[in-house]
């Protein structure tokens, strides 16, 4: 089995690992880098549980080949909190009880962050359509949407001059 050496930046840290030519980025993150926060729910890009941000763009890591990560900047759920300081999205997911089993939560958080990075003041409808690629079977999305809107408000507040 031929394996290629891949150098990338994951959550701000330079990393290198050996990837199989047919290995997905998701499998490389989980099996080579031991970052198991990203999940595989389908392997076909339908459920969004494997969402990561690659060079600022939201992607399903199950659909990207690991060797394609060469030279890229990748953000995963593991890089979202700063130490023990939760990201406002994580904080609001907890405040709103926006998760039950939690399996889709890393993907939802990463996808929501990608939205708020681009659009700090989304409408409910914009949040719903942006997150339409992230399936959650437990919550019915109500509390998830409320948490994202609340986190957006928190981030706007933080962004204001004191």
């Amino acid at each position: 089995m031929s394996r290629v050496r891949v150098e990338a930046v994951v959550n701000g840290e330079p990393v290198d690992f050996l990837a199989g030519s047919g290995q997905s980025l998701l499998d490389a993150l989980r099996d080579e880098l031991h970052l198991t926060g990203s999940k595989e729910g389908c392997g076909t890009g339908d459920c969004g549980a494997c969402s990561v941000i690659v060079d600022g763009r939201l992607v399903c890591s199950c659909l990207m080949l690991a060797p394609e990560a060469e030279g890229r900047r990748i953000e995963t759920i593991e890089g979202m909190a700063e130490g023990s300081n939760l990201h406002p999205l994580q904080h609001q997911f907890l405040e709103h009880a926006a998760l039950q089993c939690g399996f889709c939560t890393p993907g939802l958080l990463v996808a929501a962050k990608a939205l708020l990075d681009k659009n700090p003041n989304p409408t409910e409808e914009e949040v719903r359509y942006w997150l339409a690629g992230n399936m959650c079977r437990c919550t019915g999305y109500d509390k998830v949407i409320r948490a994202v809107l609340a986190a957006a408000a928190d981030l706007r507040q933080e962004g204001q001059p004191a």
Binding site: E124, R128, Y129, A132, G133, N134, C136, G140, Y141, I145
Partner: peptide, 8 residues
Amino acid sequence: PVASDLPM
């Protein structure tokens, strides 16, 4: 159902 299929 996905998020855009449902209301609150």
